[in-house]
Design a protein around this nucleic acid. Structure first.
Lengths: 235, 235
DNA sequence: TGCATTTTATTTGTCGACACAAAAACCGGA
DNA sequence: TCCGGTTTTTGTGTCGACAAATAAAATGCA
């Protein structure tokens, strides 16, 4: 894409929308690793790229820092947060608990229209699996679970879970890059089971399925990390 | 205090420290209700009060908005977030779970030095209870549980828990204002039990005690809310 | 050449000013 | 008095510029 197009597209823009645009774009680029962990973020460069002053850029960066996607070195450039492989188990713990809690609450508090939304995302997910499109699958998986969490109607849990899901996307992204996009079919059928459990309002079943789903994902990532470390040693 | 003193104190100040000062002060004022929910926050007024430009003020406000302590009405002044009494149960759910999880993890992962810190905060808490100082008690209670969470060493849980504890301080503050600072002695002994369970690394006991502690607090706040609503109806 | 020190360059943190949007005040007619 | 539209006021969103701090380059000395 012409680097100037973004500039021109922004030249006539509603007051207050600039921050959101920059925030969302940086966020996406961090999550899909087009901005790799540790890479520095230059404010003036971004300002030129978007055709705006540094002020809204800085505000977007402050927001991203608040979510932990970006780290601010005082008087020095802010950098994309690193993935902490050493303390990955804390991530797994939090992820597993949030999977369980949000699914349980969805079983308790969901309304009919929630199921529609959830099923829509599951359809997108199944399509991505069928097409062997790892990236679309990762994104749809995130949206599926985000929709489940929304149906649970607890903003505190949803907030943390969304953060974890996004952080998980960065890790999964890494995972599927190095494993040549081998896609585990189990995910799709597991999702169907979760939907059925939510629809039946069977809270205990929701909990068990969510836990199994989380364990499945955690095991796969752990296998990846272990393999990756072995390769490091081999070098 | 002389309104000019803050200005003067800041007039020679290290680059980059301004945001932190404003952030922490606003945060404290929001939590202890000296800035009541719904009250507007004027940027120029704050800028004059602190003797700095609006830029660092705005950055502090963006951070506070990220933590949900403040709400940003586009093109209109940002206001202190309201306490949502209707969905208070979602807060209780999250609070209870975080009490349990962080205490469990503290039982699992704490180191000897963690216990020292925890006991120090508990001493402060006991002193506040003895002195019938509700405000000091609320603050020490928060620090006690924050220290327990730190000992659990899961930043995701700790992050959410700290947010909940601060939000809880706002609610508790309201509670003790209207109940003439009647202090439940149970809290102090409950804390001692939790410390013992952590030190013994008895995870199940940690869970049970944390749950009981959370239930205790939730019941008290619920009683307060119920009573408050009855008064509203009476009017 | 190798190291310590000074100088330059780069990038952030802060400022004051202006443009814009929404709310509040105003006003004239019924 | 009340109501619709107009003007003023208030306070945010954005900008360009400058100052401070750090890193990189250059310089001097042994």
């Amino acid at each position: 894409m012409d680097p100037k197009s973004e500039h021109d597209a922004q030249s006539a823009r509603k007051r207050g929308s600039g921050v959101r645009i920059v925030y969302e774009l940086l966020r996406d680029e961090i999550i899909d690793l087009s901005l790799p962990p540790g890479s520095p973020i230059d404010e003036v460069q971004l300002a030129e790229r978007f055709g705006m002053s540094r002020t809204p850029i800085r505000e977007a960066l402050v927001r991203l820092a608040g979510e932990g996607l970006v780290e601010n070195l005082p008087n020095r450039s802010t950098i994309v947060s690193n993935i902490d492989f050493v303390n990955l188990h804390t991530f797994f713990d939090a992820m597993t608990l949030m999977y369980r809690v949000t699914t349980r609450l969805a079983g308790q508090y969901h309304r009919p229209e929630d199921l529609e939304t959830i099923r829509k995302h599951q359809a997108r997910f199944a399509a991505a699996v069928a097409a062997a499109d790892a990236l679309a699958m990762i994104a749809a998986n995130r949206d599926f679970h985000a929709a489940v969490a929304e149906a649970g109607r607890n903003p505190y849990f949803t907030g943390l879970f969304l953060r974890l899901l996004d952080e998980g996307r960065r890790i999964l992204r890494l995972y599927y890059q190095s494993f040549d996009d081998r896609l585990p079919q189990e995910y799709a059928t597991e999702h169907d089971g979760i939907i059925a459990a939510i629809a039946a309002r069977d809270v205990d079943l929701c909990d068990r399925l969510a836990r199994a789903h989380a364990d499945q994902i955690v095991r796969q990532i752990q296998a990846f990390v272990a393999r990756d470390q072995r390769q490091d040693i081999a070098l």
